[in-house]
């Protein structure tokens, strides 16, 4: 199934080379969790701070337990803030 992965700020370097901007479409097996997507791209766990699934925050437990659906968008940031 296809999902969209967005890696922002300093995490952009972990995107595959064919990514456009900070976004890439990935083909993942049924049953994949956000943590498995993060592992697949070798994003260091300590840099994974803010994870949104279709814009909704996932806490650490949800990242390993939530099963992704076709068309889902996972967006990830290192620790950031502003204002």
């Amino acid at each position: 199934m296809k999902i969209t992965l967005k890696l922002f700020a300093t995490l952009g370097v972990y995107l595959p080379t064919h990514a456009t901007g900070n976004v890439v479409e990935l083909d993942v097996p049924e049953g994949t969790t956000p943590d498995e997507v993060i592992d697949r791209l070798d994003v260091p766990g300590d840099l994974v701070h803010l994870v949104l699934l279709n814009g909704v925050y996932l806490d650490k437990n949800q990242r390993s337990s939530r099963v992704l659906k076709p068309g889902d968008a996972v967006a990830i940031w290192p620790p950031v803030a502003g204002g």
Binding site: K6, L52, G55, A75, P78, P79, V80, A81, G82, G83
Partner: peptide, 25 residues
Amino acid sequence: ENAVTGAGLPQFGTQVLMNVINETG
């Protein structure tokens, strides 16, 4: 030693929020 004030803000500034807040809707 704080990841936000020690690294996040100097590298991307407050502007890093543009995509965060847009994704948040």
